[in-house]
Computed example of a mutant assay.
Amino acid sequence: MMDIHKHNRIVKKLKEVYGDFSNLKTNNDNLNTRIYADLDSFNNEQKLELLDDELPILDCKLKNGNYLLATTKSLYSIYNGISYTMLYSDFSKIDRTYFFENGQLAEGKTRVFRYFLKKGDDFLYEIDSFYPADIVHNRLVLSMRFGKYDSPAGV
């Protein structure tokens, strides 16, 4: 069963924290990140195979070909031509050296993240700087790992 309730809780929280989705703060020349409050507006152009019960939350399609899709269960990335998939529950830790070498969330046009997964794999992605980077890393990856949106009380 698709988790429309989880999706709605996440979108509601993002709206409270970040305001207008079409005007998220970024240092990039163009905002390439889109939040899907309306699920009908999502077009799976990358033809990613989503799990039966997951719904899109946001994606970021950059001019350099890098792409990120965040759903209610997973992150999907195409970074430098390589495809990555990560269930939030598989997240182990961020590569802090890599993170700090790439500056702060609000610096630069985009941010690149490298995660280590529990099974030993890496997961890399690039996203617009500032609010989009904060949303994915702090409001989705870290919050989902700890089940923040699993129940209405968790918002």
Rank of each mutant, 00 (worst) to 15 (best):
D52C: 12
D53W: 08
L55T: 06
P56Q: 15
L58M: 11
K61L: 07
K61E: 10
K61P: 03
N64G: 06
G65L: 12
N66C: 11
L69P: 01
L69N: 13
A70F: 01
A70M: 01
A70C: 05
T71W: 01
T72I: 02
K73N: 03
S74C: 14
S74F: 00
L75Q: 03
S77D: 04
I78L: 08
Y79Q: 00
N80V: 08
G81F: 03
I82M: 08
Y84F: 05
Y84D: 01
M86W: 03
Y88V: 04
Y88S: 02
Y88D: 01
S89W: 04
D90P: 04
S92E: 10
S92G: 13
S92F: 10
K93M: 04
I94M: 03
I94H: 02
D95S: 04
R96F: 13
R96Q: 15
R96D: 15
Y98L: 15
Y98V: 13
Y98M: 08
F99Q: 11
F100D: 12
E101Y: 15
Q104E: 14
Q104P: 01
L105F: 15
L105M: 08
L105R: 09
E107S: 12
G108M: 15
R111I: 07
V112A: 09
R114S: 07
R114Y: 06
F116C: 04
F116W: 14
F116P: 02
L117R: 13
L117V: 07
D121A: 10
F123I: 10
L124I: 07
Y125N: 05
D128Q: 01
D128M: 00
F130E: 04
P132F: 03
A133P: 02
D134P: 09
V136E: 05
V136H: 12
H137Q: 13
V141D: 00
